[in-house]
Design a protein around this nucleic acid. Sequence first.
DNA 1: ATGAACCTTGTAGCCACTACAGGGTCAAGC
DNA 2: GCTTGACCCTGTAGTGGCTACAAGGTTCAT
Lengths: 136, 136
Amino acid sequence: MKIGDIAAATGVHVETIRYYEREGLVPSPPRTASNYRSYGDAHRRRLTFIRRARDLGFSLVQVRELLDLADDRERPCVAVDEIASKHLLRVREKIAELTALRKELDHMIGQCRHGSISECRIIDALAPETGRGPTR
Amino acid sequence: MKIGDIAAATGVHVETIRYYEREGLVPSPPRTASNYRSYGDAHRRRLTFIRRARDLGFSLVQVRELLDLADDRERPCVAVDEIASKHLLRVREKIAELTALRKELDHMIGQCRHGSISECRIIDALAPETGRGPTR
DNA sequence: ATGAACCTTGTAGCCACTACAGGGTCAAGC
DNA sequence: GCTTGACCCTGTAGTGGCTACAAGGTTCAT
């Protein structure tokens, strides 16, 4: 497989695959006589793994850890659970943050009476003083 | 006010204030004889505005638009409402995405039986094939 | 033989900062 | 008056995870 083929097969962009290679996430594949990268099935599996983990929001550092663990089949999987659980925790936190944000925005926008800027509640909500002056 | 004072007053880091100045979000303040930046109340208001908008997740491009609008007090505030509503929409989308993610992670982690990697359900969920081989 | 569609390397850009390095200035304390 | 430490200055480089060129080489169909 050439890089374009494996990109199509895994859904990882060509440039991203080369980037992963530079970063050491995937091993450098052998080259053809014309210096094209030549990939096999192991590469495809590894890239698919990375793509799924990235889709689940794992950072590249975490992906690297997960790959290392996945390759060491004897070790207990507690380490894997730990990475995933830590990530889940951060996702929960992020959701909580964004939900608080959503409420604030909802409230702010709900107050807008569509008049002129000088009586805009949204700008009011952002400006520091109630009797607000120009910001510059 | 020196830059450290206004940083303390607004909660915007010193380096970030200088960065905003470079980016043209805040005007360059006058300098003292010793070339220190010297800020007044208008700067403080503008920085506070920026900070609140950033806290609400607006991008710097959006903040710039909001600042322009805030300074033009006669225009109708529909434009402000539009920016805020668009942002709210993206926040809602992000929450939906993360919630779906949370469910997937929940499910994945819930299946972990804490055995060895070779029978780890989390790795399984990431690996491309059911009878999975090494990823490299 | 020509053109399109691929491949190569290397570099720069994105966002919104953050972290230095290597200097200058100022106020307090001795 | 001298030191110390906290501040300030500019400029540059780094962060994450790509993405987008530029400038060239290869392959394949027509």
